[in-house]
Design a binder for these strands. Structure first.
Lengths: 140, 140
DNA sequence: ACTACGGATGCAAAAGCTTCTCATTATTAT
DNA sequence: ATAATAATGAGAAGCTTTTGCATCCGTAGT
């Protein structure tokens, strides 16, 4: 029994071909951050028969199940990332779209404090730093 | 000469009725955070003749001119806020949509450090804390 | 004030992303 | 294997936002 199917079972999801393929795609992706369209196109190129609607449905289910995180980067469309290991935030390049990750306990702590001071019960947070990455800075 | 028209002139924009009205709307809004649709509907209710396309166009121009900031809160559509005074971040209620603001120099400093460490030239950043506000926490 | 020019507006249509509908197909428990 | 039930694919629909175009308005020069 593969690791993927176990993940699906644990999440209370039936083990189907599309779900397996999408999970694999997320695991093997180099960038780790994919849009629904990215996943869809890659699967088509791999010769899979899949509908875009299914990709969206499955990704949403994965999000609900906690398997993936959905990010709303600038530009409107959602990006999905496999949830493995610890929480982290993102720093992204506005020129080439590169995405790096970081984690800062000082910031995390301050956020919790700020929410508490404001009387909020914190449920989530998102921090994106935008900039020009090392590679793009060179190219004028 | 009104304050609004000066703002527009400084931004290199012609002083037109729609632009004036939208600027007033942003200045007088209680919540300070409005979607394009919000602005459009409010202006219609005030008896103004305006098109939704114009609202979007003008808000984008205002953003380019630095008069307003555009935020991408969860849920897909953009929110616009008048740029007055200093930078700040947002904490919002996932139940009622309430938006509060905060500013934390510790976090700002850490962000700059993180960008520098990663070799990025920082251009922008966005931090949203999501939670349940004091009012909504009471209501079970 | 008057005119002419160029930019601004409104409407409708279009575009882009995401969700929904529904007939068909696949998965699971029996 | 079979029946019950959930998942899928294809296209239509929904929403926010943008664009094309004819018309209108602000502005600068007279």
């Amino acid at each position: 029994m593969s690791t993927e199917s176990n993940h699906l079972r644990k999440a209370g999801l039936k083990v189907t071909l599309p779900r397996m393929k999408i999970l694999e795609m997320l695991e093997n992706s180099e960038t780790r951050h994919l849009s629904a369209e990215d996943v869809y196109k890659s699967l088509l190129e791999s010769g899979e028969e899949i509908g875009l609607a299914t990709v969206y449905r499955v990704l949403t289910q994965f999000e609900t199940a906690g398997l993936v995180a959905r990010h709303h980067f600038e530009g409107g469309h959602s990006m999905f990332e496999l949830n493995e290991g610890d929480h982290h935030d993102h720093i992204l390049c506005v020129k080439c779209g590169r995405v790096d990750e970081f984690m800062d306990e000082t910031i995390e702590k301050r956020q919790r404090q700020i929410a508490q001071d404001a009387g909020y019960e914190i449920t989530d947070h998102s921090l994106y730093i935008y900039g020009i990455c090392p590679d793009c800075r060179g190219k004028a």
